[in-house]
Amino acid sequence: MPNIIHRIGINCPPGKVFELLTTNEGLSKWWTTDTSGAGDVGSVIEFRFEGMGPDFEVIELQTDALVRWKHAGEMPGAWMGTEVSFQLSREGNQTWVLFLHSGWKEQSEFMGHCSTKWAVFLLSLKDAIETGKGKPFPNDIHIDHDES
């Protein structure tokens, strides 16, 4: 099965990244401003983009080290059965975020689109922490002319 993988260094301790991956307030600073449901393992986070969007169940949390979600909704269909993980490690003055969106059934143009958008949002996470201003949807960088 193909996977999307990205790695980014953020100038902060792992706890700050973990906070922005595990709370509604944190997630809304970098992915979409319409986020609800974040919490402990078993919580279902609803991410909304103009009223629609994916839901993810929190399946694993290791404080300041790992966040794992399993796709729990029907939107988008190609994400059915996929998982998202953020592995955090400290090196020098930065925290490395190893991002993985795994379990795709096949490579596709949509997968390529999602990979680029994940990169956009990971840079938004970096900016939210390092500058205090991320670019969550609807203020994200648009990669095509059909996006709102």
Rank of each mutant, 00 (worst) to 15 (best):
M1C: 10
I4V: 13
I4E: 02
R7K: 14
R7L: 05
I8K: 00
I10P: 00
I10D: 00
P13W: 05
P14Y: 09
V17M: 05
F18R: 15
E19K: 14
L20E: 00
N24D: 15
N24M: 03
G26M: 01
W30C: 04
W30P: 00
W31S: 02
D34L: 06
G37N: 10
D40R: 09
D40K: 13
S43A: 15
I45K: 02
I45Q: 03
I45G: 02
I45T: 14
E46C: 09
F47K: 01
M52L: 12
P54D: 05
D55A: 13
V58G: 01
E60P: 04
L61D: 09
V67G: 04
V67T: 01
R68K: 15
R68H: 03
W69S: 03
K70N: 03
A72F: 01
W79I: 00
W79Y: 02
M80N: 11
G81M: 06
T82H: 08
V84Y: 00
S85A: 15
Q94W: 04
Q94L: 06
W96P: 03
W96F: 13
F99Y: 10
F99R: 02
L100G: 04
H101G: 05
S102Q: 10
S102Y: 03
E106W: 06
S108H: 11
S108G: 12
E109C: 05
M111I: 09
C114N: 11
T116N: 07
K117F: 08
K117R: 13
F121Q: 00
F121V: 03
F121G: 00
S124N: 05
L125A: 06
L125Y: 01
K126Q: 14
P136H: 04
F137I: 08
P138E: 12
D140L: 11
I141P: 00
I141F: 08
H142Q: 12
